[in-house]
Design a protein around this nucleic acid. Sequence first.
DNA 1: ATCCTATCCTGTAGGC
DNA 2: TGCCTACAGGATAGGA
Length: 305
Amino acid sequence: MPELPEVETVRRMLESSVLGRTVRSVRLSGLKLRERVRPDLPRRLAGRRFVTARRIGKYLLLDLDGGLTILSHLGMSGRWLFHAQVPRRSPPHVHARIRFADGSQLWFQDPRRFGLLRLVETERLAADPSLALLGPDPVAEPLTGDGLLALATGARVSVKTFLLDQRRIAGIGNIYASEILHRAGLDPRTRAGAVRPERWAMVARETTAVLGEAIDRFGTTFSAYRTLWNEPGSNGENLRVYDRRGEPCQTCGTAIRRIVQGARSTFFCPRCQPAGQGRRPSERPVSGPSSRRNAPRGGRNRART
DNA sequence: ATCCTATCCTGTAGGC
DNA sequence: TGCCTACAGGATAGGA
C-alpha cells in the first residue's frame, strides 16, 4: 500500500521530471476510480504547465498554472509513471495519459481503482473534503511526544488503529504503523489514551526515523508500488516486523506474531512490545476469535502495496 | 461523539 | 494444468 514515503518518493520524482512541462493533451480510460474522473479534465488541462508538486499525508497535489490542481491518491495500487519514450505495448489499467509536447507522457495506472484523480481549483483546496479533515503531516511537522499525547487524549482505540487514522496523523498506513510500534517497544493493542508520555515520545521519534529511512530507500515494494520510473522501492529489507510472521525478531529472536486489528494485519514482537503499557481496547478480529483464519498464505511475495 | 463494519476493486496464492 | 476462493487494505458511508 502506498503510504507517505511512497507518495513522497513519487512527488520528488515528479518534481524533477514534470515541473515546467506543458500539457499537450490528455486521454482518459473513462473507468470509475474511487470516484468518477471529470470527463472535461482533458480539456481543462490542455495548455497548462505543471508548476508545483506537493504532498499532504498520502495525497499528491499537482498544481498547474492558471489556478488548477490535480488532487491525486494512489489508493492500493495506483501508480504515476513517467515515460520519456512511450513503450510500444501499452499496459492495462492506465486511466489517464498526459502527453507533453516532446512526446513524453505521464500516466496514472491503477488496477484496483481505489485511487483518486480529482480536479480542484487551487484556491479551494483547503476546503476539499478529502483534505479538510487530515491531521498533521509527520514529515512536514515532525511529531512530538506532547503533541501525540494531546491527540490521543480520551481515545479508546488501540494505538495501532490510532496511528492509521488519517484525521489524527496523515500519512501512516498499515506497514509503517507496525514498524513504528515495534521500534517504540509498544504493544499495538494498547489503548491509545492509556499510552504513557515517555512512550509517546518514543513513538514520535521512531515515526520520524521509520518514515525518513523509507523515503531514503524510495519506499517499500511488495508488488504493486512502483516509483515514477516504474522501479520498486528497496525499503522492504529494512522492515523489522511487517509481513514477517514467524521470523525471529531482529532484536531478541522471539517469533514475530500476526494479529488482526480492525480487519487489518498487525505484526509485532511479543517480547520487545510487551503488554501492560496500558489497558487494552476491546478490538477483536472480524471473523471471530480465530485469527488463524485470516492468516496470509503467501510468503513475502504476496500481492500487496 | 465515537467507534466499528462493510464496501469498493483486481491480482495472486494456494487448494484441489 | 486450471479452476475456484479468499485475502490484501486505501478511504469512507452509514450503522451501532
